[in-house]
Amino acid sequence: MTIGLQTIKPIEVSRLIGEVETLKNAGYRLAAISCVKVGEVFEINYSFDKEYELENLRITVTGDTEVPSITGMYWGAFVYENEMHDLFGIQVRGMNIDFKGTFIRTAIKYPFSVTTAKGEKP
């Protein structure tokens, strides 16, 4: 049984703002921004929801890429972007409320940017 529809659309970082704007104009709401470290790169998923359909935009960036902020379109996105910065060390450009690394204060800087998985084969 599959629950709800969800699509993942990989896009370039430069096209992010344009794509998000299209979704905003189509009446989508921001559901989440999730960051994942895959190998050496970071995958950032922007999830949008409308009528229970989840639309994901995925950008793949390296640790030193600056990601544009989407707070211009979605005012509430600053919680996710600050979290992403504090946990993964992703630099986000142009946030409306920039906590500069104090949103989630951790003893180790950017704790989620290192992978410690055992990764055993089953």
Partner: peptide
């Protein structure tokens, strides 16, 4: 929202 990503091992990514 729970986002889960696995890589075929017993430990999720």
């Amino acid at each position: 929202v729970h986002y889960i990503k696995g890589n075929g091992t017993k430990f999720l990514v």
